[in-house]
Structure formats: structure tokens, C-alpha cells
Design a protein around this nucleic acid. Sequence first.
DNA 1: CACTTGTTGACAAACTTACTCGTATTTAAT
DNA 2: ATTAAATACGAGTAAGTTTGTCAACAAGTG
Lengths: 144, 144
Amino acid sequence: MKLSKKSEYGLRALIELASTHGKATLQRQEIAARQHIPIEFLEQILLMLKRAGLVSSRRGIKGGYALIKQPKDITLGQVIRILDGPLAPISCVSKTAYQKCNDCPYANKPRCPVQQAMGTVRDAIAGILDHYSLADFASGHRKG
Amino acid sequence: MKLSKKSEYGLRALIELASTHGKATLQRQEIAARQHIPIEFLEQILLMLKRAGLVSSRRGIKGGYALIKQPKDITLGQVIRILDGPLAPISCVSKTAYQKCNDCPYANKPRCPVQQAMGTVRDAIAGILDHYSLADFASGHRKG
DNA sequence: CACTTGTTGACAAACTTACTCGTATTTAAT
DNA sequence: ATTAAATACGAGTAAGTTTGTCAACAAGTG
């Protein structure tokens, strides 16, 4: 049930990008300095976010990163799924990356207790994170 | 955000123990066979649950394991905390295993966005798992 | 006693996490 | 065109976690 450093750094980096959204681009060293993130590691993270279509980048002098979408149109759920994979505690209850469990004695049975319980948990987590936008997030106000 | 095999096996083992609670004890090989759990690994898990005061054991022929408490008095939250550690996605929002974050630039600031968001998630997860009893669980009905 | 079962500690392979490094490649300024 | 500054990308890696296995020991039963 843990959030990786990768996701934590990714979210914190996006706060910075949200704060200058529409005004300027930010270089990785600026982001790294402001949020205390190891710079080479941050680079990987920004690259993943870029490949996923959340941020854009420019190389060369005057280069840097910027958000492509509006902060209100990016959710924490999206970000964490990109960086950490599915939100579901076990893959047989994931809606974005479902996988049948094979070794489970309840597989294909009408109800598996683990599936019922973890399905509820998944729905709760996704219910929060998929409705928590980067705008809400950067504002620092508790939501949900 | 993942449930370990240890917790999954632990929960499944407890379903078996709940099913014979008050009637009989179960040996690890019976539990392992019914739930398809590697027996030596299961042993470790049962031992952890024993040390935590959830199950009792008897050695020798006619030995085995049994629940100490009523299934309705054991929650999934308790079990998962024993086997996997805290439910919170990050330790600075854990109520049972709080740890101050040191490298975070928002440490000691009035509000840290990550803390706000993950606090909400933690409360949701704990809200479900701390009110989901082994009795609910073994019944196989969705709750919450 | 012999036999069965749980107890304990050590070990280990496979995987994941959290980075680091070297080398491109692109862009802008001189 | 050259150079400096920035991102892009692949590889590597040390440490930790997960998911087990194994062997020796302790205790209860007949």
C-alpha cells in the first residue's frame, strides 16, 4: 500500500509546473532544487510524464518542461498510474489493468472474498485520486 | 499500492480458520492444501499472526492452529498491518506508524499537498479495512 | 520410545526501488 | 560553424523487499 518515491517526486514536480503553467517553462534543475529531488532521477520521471502526454519539453539553451494540459484536467490518479502502475491492491480488481488470478482457489467462482474486499478498497482509492486534480492538489487544500 | 502475497495468503488462511472456529483446529497442511499456499511460507505467516495474538497453536499430533478471537472481532486492517505494515501510502500520514518526512520541502509547513491527498486516501483505506471483519470477509459479501 | 506437528533461524533467487553515468541529440547564441 | 546548454536514452547498480526453501530443534501423543 505504498506510494513510491517516483510518484511522490512526480507529483511534486507537477506542482512546480502547475505553478508556472501558461507563464513559463521550467528546467529540471530548477524543479529539482525547489523540490529537493535528485536531478537525474527527476529526468526519468519527467520523461515518463512526457511520453504519457502530460508534459512537453524543449531541448537546448532556454529549454525546459511545461504542462500540456490544464492543471484541472490532470488527476493524481492519472499521474500515479503512469509512474507506479495500477491503483488496485491486486490485479484481479484493477479496472485499467485487469488480470485474472490463476493460483487463487476462488478463481472463476462467483465470489472471492479477497476480490470483494480489495475491490471496495480499489474503488475508494480511485474514487479519490481520479477526482483529485492537479489544481486541487497544488492549492494544498484537502479534498474528498 | 499493492497487497503482498503474504497478506493475501494470510487473509485466505484466516478464512479457513474462521470456518472451523469453535469447532476444530486446522493444521497448516490442510490450510495450505485448501487455499493453495506454499506450506513453508504459510508457516511463517501463521507464526506472525500467532505472535500478534490472533491465532493459537498446538504442537504434536492433533496439533494445529485456531483463532483466538471471534471472527467479528478481527478486522482486515489489523491483519494487513501485521503482515504488510502500515496502511498509509506514505509514513507521514500514518496514524499507527507515523514518521516525520525529512527530505520533503513542505516538512513542518502548515500544509503539504502530498500529505493532504495521501491523508485522504489513508483515511479511506483504513475506513474500509478497519471496519471489515473476518466474519464479513469470510461470508464473501461485499461491504462498504 | 517413535512419530507427528509446530518453532526458529538461516539462506537465497528473483524482483523492485531509487538512483547514477555516459553518450547522444537538439536548440540557441556567438 | 562552433560551442554551450539543455533534454533523451540506454545501461548499470547497490540496496532492499518479496517470496519463498531448508534444516535442525522443541514439544505433544500414544
